[in-house]
Amino acid sequence: MNWEFIFKDGLIAGIQGIPVSLFVTFVSMLIALPLSFLCAMGRFKRVPVLSQLITVIGSFLRGTPLVVQLFIVYSGFPSLLNVLVQRNGWDFDPFGISPYVFAFVVFSLNVLGTLTEVFRSSLSAVGKEQTEAALSVGLNHFQTNCLIVIPQALVSAIPNICNEFLNLFKSTSLVYMMTIQDILGKVRLVAAEGYDYTEAYVVIAVIYFVLGFTMEKLFQRMEGNLKTYKAAPQV
């Protein structure tokens, strides 16, 4: 074991990569959250056509490996675009698109597939009687959803959102394949000099664990704050 690498070069490189990993994670999540909620509402309300479309796309996104999705978008999409560019004579270089754009597209779509199901199941977990009660006191459907159904659904979705968030955070380590220098990319880069790959992956594992553990705790605290109405002891 090259301890010096672990505690010095490797660790420093890894820490430098943290902002990149977090950036990709947060942006993808922020794109996916509202979209998947809308998709879930579409499924929940059984909006015709839209609902079926979401189901099929969702199954595809959940049923194909992330690496495959990544390569389809990263290498397939620019080539496809290039054909169009050449045919129409546009002044645009499809191979110059930032890999971050592809990362955001792939990861947010991938999370969208699972988060839609998370939101849909938590929406349907809110009892029908909650809606009926709200209607019976004179609320319309929009008010009922905004004030009663959605707030309850969101709270019960938090643990699953946390899971998805952690999964996404870990998955973003694949961005090194698109030349983005995240935690994994940076550490591997410095490891190449002395061939310290074993050490490199130990460093990477530790960094991911510390960050992942912190996120989990933060989510738990948030859930605790939001679900006071459930955790309350019987009197």
Partner: peptide, 20 residues
């Protein structure tokens, strides 16, 4: 909506808003 504002309903399973 108008009629519902003139009637009250008490449910068998109470159906209180859990988050209120």
């Amino acid at each position: 909506l108008k009629l519902r504002k003139r009637t009250g309903f008490v449910f068998q399973n109470y159906a209180l808003f859990a988050n209120k």
